[in-house]
Write a protein that binds this DNA or RNA. Structure first.
Lengths: 404, 404
DNA sequence: TTTATTTTGTCAAATTGATAGAAAAAATAA
DNA sequence: TTATTTTTTCTATCAATTTGACAAAATAAA
């Protein structure tokens, strides 16, 4: 059920079908309803280019499944006053977890991305087993606290800091003991079994990117890069309307761009990687804080709010790197927008951006002004993004559902 | 007819159809025939997951249109000896042009990518008008020399060094007078009118990448980056099985990655761009050669063959940048392979690669060994790649053909 | 108030590809 | 010679979108 790579290798050699066309159309109609709010069927027909009758049929079926509901529309203009269709947001819920080195954040949300429950907890050890146990415990907590919602749970999303070591077979790595560092952060197979729900795993940047795409600023964009500023530095890429995971699920690992070939060695094996300079980890080192402790982030936020000269000095010092990072993402991917988020308060991110002015210009000579946005941030945002993956797998149109 | 962006913005909101499914299946079957040589219909059915009967119908129709032909198969193993299907390569031809600063290279090829004619000419001035006229003259030359093939011409591909200034409406730039440098290298509208054929325009790196994808080493890969080492430096990206052009058609402009924020100014407006150091242009500067002259490339090749210490020294000097370039493409895109090509002889490219050893390691700790290939190179290769775009538009499966 | 126009909702029939099943044909293996 | 296997072809079925027609319900215009 891992459906994160939307266009299978076989796209060019895989045929279609009446049935596949049907599921695609259902998903498309649902997508329009989901993103365009209460909407008339005729308008859906215009947007999707499907005939009115087809939309009628599909909406009818969706209604009988309880996914959408009809609502009377007050007449505007001439003609028969039609009904509008809208999502029944409480039809189903998804659960998302943001697994960090020493903590797990959980969120449950409805189909509109409204968070209906959240919780979290710390880990005793940075092992997959500890993460597994915590996730299962949190899921149990949700089931206890919200039994009626839990009945309508349809999927679980998992986000963890990459890079992962899983190329295609997450099951192959069930005996991994390392935490995240080039291993699997959790035991996917056992989790799926324990939770008795489909589970999708993604790195934190991808999850956050997907969250922005489905619920946030990324709505409506076909291609954008989401930069996740956390302990490490990564990017989630939405290209051509879908998450681009990369051949081995490690696309967008901009933290390991080599900025200074003679720089300090990085855990990846190279030297002078970007995240050695530009990340919360790097800032912690500068400030003499413990990068493995979550209290450090709060401490940094407090220092920043107080206008601490060391923190502000650091932000100024990394300005050239911020510029380089934005230039590289822009030149390499040519996205519509770049969204900056992370596990720290938005005004901190804004400061990083502001102090990096003037940003490098684009190829056509125009400035980056207005192309870079601050996204939602915080651990819960990532957890929310993780749920988006589950929602997407179940409801969103995707090329894979068109093929045999 | 510009079909270079394979997944339209509307993918998530565009329905399908029986008819669309049909054309997709036709293209899929044709793609299998095209890439898997003479092949039995049963095997096609297995590959495409279409039923045998469906393949039968589709092949029948393709045969009656004269696109494919049947051939007797000598029996192997038990059972009825079936027929194999193969492309009628001479069914149709496409024309490709590689427009450079002061020259145009032309090639015509059949559906197998076999070059059946080639020519070229220099420009008096670096203007779109001069390029236009030369292209039209070359097309006329082809029509005179190969009148029987010219009758079966179905499309024209154009490749020019980017970046372009065209976001979505190439027609808007018909009055462009600058050559390529942030303008349109040709007058697309007038060309289309004069040639009376659909014309697709791409930057040289994209065209070369597509060429590799359809005819060359890139066959069979779902995602790869093709690095075009020319006077400038660019990359063509094939992601998720299709060319990724970027939001404003400028993805993969790795020549303008800022390597040294304090470096010399670049024409793009920033400083210390990669191609200021790593490109034929940069080498010309080092050697005191004229970068606008085509003779310089030949001169460099001659010097390289003779083991000129200045050239070899330059190759050694740029080794760190070569390493950085490969690292950046790899980390950002996580492609299956990286293909290195350009307008210079392959062993020169191989030398650049060899002298950059050891290459930076990948995220999973493995080496880049075996992941980087030298592609076909030369101006004709780009022209051939340009034809591939025309072929693709007409025959290749693409998401856009599935949607309404 | 009446009439025309416009838009929505619904029904039934038509269309169109893919698919399933059966049977014939042509080869090899036993 | 017989059984098996694979390809080919024919016919009928199926499942989705689409088309066209018409009633219903509102507003706009006369």
């Amino acid at each position: 059920m891992n459906d994160s790579s939307p266009i299978p290798a076989s796209f060019r050699t895989s045929g279609t079908n009446l049935t596949r066309a049907k599921t695609h159309n259902h998903r498309v109609v649902l997508e329009v309803i989901r993103t365009r709010g209460p909407i008339g069927r005729t308008e859906i027909s215009e947007i999707t280019s499907l005939s009115r009758q087809t939309v009628q049929n599909i909406v009818g079926e969706l209604e009988s499944r309880g996914v959408v509901e009809m609502k009377a529309q007050k007449a505007k203009g001439r003609g028969h006053p039609g009904m509008t269709v809208q999502l029944k947001a409480d039809h189903a819920f998804s659960l998302g977890f943001h697994v960090d080195r020493l903590s797990v954040t959980a969120a449950a949300c409805d189909l509109n991305g409204q968070i209906v429950w959240q919780s979290g907890g710390s880990l005793e050890a940075a092992t997959p087993e500890a993460a597994n146990d915590r996730i299962i415990a949190l899921a149990e907590e949700f089931r206890m606290e919200k039994p009626d919602l839990a009945k309508r749970l349809f999927g679980v999303g998992l986000a963890a800091p990459g890079p992962f070591d899983l190329v295609d077979a997450p099951e192959a790595k069930t005996d991994a003991t390392t935490f995240s560092e080039f291993g699997s952060p959790v035991n996917l197979g056992k989790l799926q079994e324990a939770l008795r729900l489909p589970v999708v795993l993604q790195n934190d940047a991808s999850a956050a990117a997907l969250g922005e795409h489905v619920y946030g600023i990324g709505r409506g964009y076909t291609s954008f890069a989401f930069i996740q500023f956390g302990m490490g530095l990564g990017a989630g890429l939405v290209l051509n309307g879908a998450l681009y995971p990369g051949a081995s699920k490690n696309a967008g690992e901009i933290g390991h761009l080599i900025i200074n070939p003679n720089g300090p060695p990085c855990s990846c094996g190279n030297r002078g990687c970007l995240e050695r300079y530009l990340s919360l980890n790097a800032l912690c080192e500068t400030l003499g804080l413990d990068p493995t402790s979550h209290a450090s982030v709060s401490r940094i936020e407090a220092l920043f709010e107080a206008g601490d000269p060391e923190v502000l000095g650091w932000i100024d010092a990394v300005a050239p790197l911020t510029r380089q990072m934005i230039n590289m993402v822009d030149m390499m991917l040519d996205p519509e927008v770049i969204i900056l988020g992370g596990i720290i308060r938005p005004d901190f991110l804004q400061a990083i951006l502001d102090r990096a002015q003037p940003l490098p210009c684009r190829l056509d000579g125009t400035s980056q002004a207005g192309r870079i946005h601050i996204g939602t941030s915080g651990a819960t945002a990532v957890a929310l993004g993780a749920t988006a993956a589950a929602v997407d797998a179940l409801y969103a149109p995707s090329v894979s559902h068109l093929l045999l």
